[in-house]
Simulated scan of single mutants.
Amino acid sequence: MQADVSPDPVLASYRPPSQLVRDKEIDHLDAHCRAFVALAPFAVLSTADAAGAPEVSPRGGDPGFVKVLDEHRLVLPDRQGNNRLDSLRNVAANPQVALLFLVPGVEETLKVYGTAALAGPDVPGLDLTEFGRAPRSVLVVTVTRAYLQCAKAVMRSGLWDPAAQVDRSALPPFGTMIRDHCRLETPLPDDATLRAELALEL
């Protein structure tokens, strides 16, 4: 990690990061990173298209649904979804990706950066039976940077605090929001039916 040398006055107003913050970034998945990925049931995938327009996509499954092949490669399965394929189309045009892993009850997070390649089910060293139902495709990520993020953001948000959970009734049903987004005149099915019809992964 290099110090910011931007002349922007706002950036210049920040103090430099400590040496510890600089040094925590590594170029591979060490034992701690691999253990974190193995426990994570949820990750956020960040991609961008050829023009740099960003996309973020939540990905989830059983703990360890992202498989680590070795200290420089991990595999993210593509589960059945809504077939927009935004992230996959982006990777086909621009391989730069980032992943943010979360483990329930753990306030630290793991950031992983690298380049991704879209692949079918024949990745060397990958046993697709580990995924349960075989995915149609996977992203093979070659890791270039990884580091553990401190707990401050998760602590401030109260993310894992049961008392901080919002009652679902605070928002309209999913179907109502989708109907309004699409400007439909007729109501949509109940949420459970709608999710099944859209093949959304929960």
Rank of each mutant, 00 (worst) to 15 (best):
Met1Arg: 12
Gln2Ile: 13
Ser6Tyr: 13
Pro7Ile: 07
Asp8Gln: 12
Val10Thr: 10
Ala12His: 05
Ala12Thr: 05
Tyr14Ser: 03
Ser18Gly: 07
Val21Met: 11
Lys24His: 09
Lys24Tyr: 05
Glu25Thr: 15
His28Cys: 13
His28Phe: 15
Arg34Ile: 13
Ala35Thr: 14
Ala35Arg: 07
Val37Cys: 04
Leu39Val: 05
Leu39His: 10
Ala40Asn: 03
Ala40Gly: 10
Ala40Pro: 08
Ala40Tyr: 06
Ala43Gln: 01
Ala43Thr: 14
Ser46Gly: 15
Ala51Ser: 12
Ala51Arg: 07
Pro54Trp: 02
Ser57Tyr: 04
Pro58Asp: 09
Gly60Arg: 12
Asp62Ala: 15
Gly64Arg: 02
Val66Pro: 04
Val68Phe: 05
Asp70Asn: 10
Arg73Ala: 08
Arg73Cys: 10
Val75Cys: 04
Pro77Phe: 10
Pro77Gly: 03
Asp78Asn: 06
Gly81Ser: 07
Gly81Lys: 02
Asn82Glu: 01
Asn82Thr: 13
Arg84Pro: 01
Asp86Phe: 06
Leu88Asn: 00
Ala93Phe: 04
Pro95Ile: 09
Pro95Glu: 03
Pro95Cys: 06
Gln96Asn: 15
Gln96Ser: 14
Val97Ala: 02
Val97Asn: 01
Ala98Asn: 04
Leu100Val: 14
Phe101Ala: 07
Leu102Glu: 00
Pro104Glu: 05
Gly105Cys: 01
Val106Lys: 02
Glu108Asn: 13
Thr109Trp: 03
Thr109Pro: 03
Leu110Lys: 08
Leu110Asp: 03
Gly114Val: 10
Thr115Val: 15
Leu118Cys: 07
Ala119His: 07
Gly120Phe: 11
Gly120Ser: 07
Gly120Asp: 12
Gly120Val: 11
Asp122Tyr: 14
Asp122Ala: 15
Asp122Ile: 12
Val123Met: 01
Pro124Arg: 01
Gly125Arg: 06
Leu126Trp: 06
Ala134His: 12
Pro135Cys: 03
Val138His: 01
Leu139Met: 00
Val140Asn: 05
Tyr147Ala: 03
Leu148Asn: 00
Cys150Pro: 04
Ala151Phe: 01
Ala151Gln: 03
Lys152Glu: 02
Arg156Leu: 08
Ser157Tyr: 01
Leu159Trp: 08
Trp160Leu: 04
Ala163Val: 09
Ala163Thr: 13
Ala164Val: 04
Gln165Phe: 13
Asp167Cys: 07
Arg168Lys: 09
Gly175Arg: 01
Gly175Cys: 11
Met177Trp: 08
Ile178Gln: 02
Arg179Ser: 13
His181Leu: 15
Leu184Ser: 03
Leu184Trp: 11
Glu185Lys: 06
Thr186Lys: 14
Pro187Cys: 04
Leu188Gln: 02
Leu188Ala: 02
Asp191Asn: 13
Ala192Ser: 14
Thr193Ala: 13
Thr193Leu: 12
Leu194Ile: 14
Leu198Trp: 09
Ala199Phe: 13
Glu201Pro: 08
Glu201Tyr: 13
